[in-house]
């Protein structure tokens, strides 16, 4: 799998993402500066976490208009794979690649802790090495992760099976308590209709090493590497 990570000014989890991808694929992903307009040949484009443009105006708003985004949209339109995490998720919703928007956390405070996610379907490139219904742990670190969309969009996401992950308790219960940022229907991540664009708020890339507290995030990257093996 050839992977490329887009670097917007203010992004800060691009190195974490590179480590996770390299662990899964054995090769370093390419770093693409946001002013570039050509992604080169790549199977997977990753929009990592951070604070592009300082989260000023709205999280992800200015990055969504960066020159590179034209190429990212074209890649997605061709059926290319896109993984968008945290600020990356905010950027792809601002860019219209995924529906909805990320609002300020319900409690109005930054949330940095581990959360549990329930895998909603396991027949995708992103989730192929999890089981459907599996609960896994992932760190989250965001101030604006409160997923919202119109009721019609939410119904469509549910109806078409495009919800990727939901916030859950450790035992799998989908509750308000588990939904710390207040997201609609506990949604933590979603897919595009062709299941090739995946956006999520938590950081599986920060849990791929037992020394850092676990490897719950590793199947996501191993799964991508297996599904996209050249």
């Amino acid at each position: 799998m050839r992977a490329a990570i887009v670097v917007f000014p203010g992004i800060n989890r691009e190195r974490d993402m590179a480590i996770a991808l390299e662990r899964a694929t054995g090769r370093k992903p390419r770093m693409i500066w946001h002013k570039e307009t050509d992604l080169g040949g790549t199977d997977l484009v990753v929009l990592p976490g951070g604070f592009s443009y300082g989260d000023y105006l709205r999280c992800g708003a200015m990055a969504s208009l960066s020159p590179v985004m034209t190429a990212v949209k074209a890649h997605a339109a061709r059926g290319g794979y896109v993984l968008a995490v945290c600020n990356g998720f905010q950027i792809v919703t601002e860019a219209g690649l995924l529906p909805g928007a990320l609002l300020r956390n319900a409690g109005l405070r930054f949330l940095s802790m581990d959360c549990h996610l329930r895998v909603e379907r396991a027949d995708t490139a992103f989730t192929g090495q999890y089981r459907k219904g599996q609960i896994f742990r992932a760190p989250m670190a965001h101030g604006d992760g409160n997923y919202t969309a119109s009721p019609e969009d939410l119904d469509r996401l549910e109806g078409e099976g495009l919800v990727a992950f939901r916030y859950a308790e450790a035992d799998g219960a989908i509750s308000d308590k588990a939904n710390r940022n207040g997201s609609a229907r506990n949604i933590a991540g979603i897919f595009s209709p062709n299941l090739r664009v995946c956006g999520l708020m938590p950081h599986p890339e920060n849990l791929v090493d037992p020394l850092m507290g676990g490897t719950d995030g590793k199947p996501l990257f191993d799964g991508l590497a297996a599904a996209l093996a050249a």
Binding site: A61, M62, E94, P99, G100, A101, L103, T148
Partner: peptide, 9 residues
């Protein structure tokens, strides 16, 4: 429309 507001929300 293009930048200052996100018309979704």
């Amino acid at each position: 429309r293009k930048l200052l507001a996100n018309m979704v929300i």
